[in-house]
């Protein structure tokens, strides 16, 4: 009786160990990517001028983005990043200046006003301790006035679960895009434009599984 009871205990322990091992193996397998979307994010810019006291600031709160997010051994992986800011939503607080900006900076030679667009195939976010912000180095292509140029930015990501906030600073040179520095009544902007992005991303749906594990 005593020995049969001992055998039962051993069997239960073996089953528990198997189940635990199976669960651990499942947790180590690549998860299905999640579709993450950004609506109403903020994209702002600041550019100095030849007059020390004058800088031009502007922003849009219509940043839209979509990407796939998954976790793997590298950390958090962002894939298929597509972001856009409609030029018409960019404002500096002064209507006349906004008109000039759209006309002289963002309008193509054929009169089009294409959105600002950013795309990146893949970005990896460094692993982080729970509750600590993570840094995602995102490099891709930023198109201004329809002209794509390489662009990279480090996004500081906080939060977790299905919602996280990302903030990052970058810079572009107008000359890289073939854009003349705007000038108005003796005040001329610098070539470098500082950019800042601040948005909250939310997981919308699970993407179709791509890991092959069903």
């Amino acid at each position: 009786m005593k020995s049969r009871f001992a055998i039962s205990i051993k069997g239960a322990i073996a089953v528990a160990a198997y189940l635990a091992a199976a669960a651990h193996a499942q947790s180590q397998a690549p998860a299905d990517p999640a579709i993450v979307e950004v609506h109403g994010g903020t994209a702002s810019f600041a550019v100095d001028t030849n007059v020390p006291a004058i800088s031009v600031h502007g922003k849009s709160t219509a940043l839209e983005a979509k990407l796939r997010l998954r976790q793997d051994a590298e950390g958090t992986v962002l894939e298929g990043i597509e972001a856009a800011v409609p030029v018409k939503t960019l404002g500096t607080g002064m209507g006349m200046r906004d008109e000039h900006m759209r006309k002289y900076v963002f309008t193509t030679s054929d009169g089009q006003l294409p959105d600002l667009r950013f795309s990146s195939d893949k970005a990896v976010c460094a692993k982080r301790e729970a509750g600590q912000p993570s840094t995602c180095h995102v490099s891709g292509t930023l198109a201004i006035r329809g002209t794509p140029r390489p662009f990279a930015i480090d996004l500081k990501v906080t939060g977790g679960g299905e919602t996280f906030r990302a903030v990052g600073d970058g810079a572009v040179s107008l000359s890289d895009y073939g854009i003349d520095r705007p000038s108005q009544l003796g005040v001329k902007t610098a070539d470098e434009v500082k950019l800042r992005f601040d948005f909250t991303a939310r997981q919308s749906t699970r993407a179709v599984a791509t890991s092959g594990r069903k």
Partner: peptide, 21 residues
């Protein structure tokens, strides 16, 4: 106002519009 200021003055007015220096 300086020239730039006159441009801002016009831009910040209801009927100002574009300032021609």
């Amino acid at each position: 106002l300086n020239t730039y200021g006159r441009g801002i003055d016009a831009a910040q007015s209801l009927s100002g519009g574009e300032y021609e220096p």
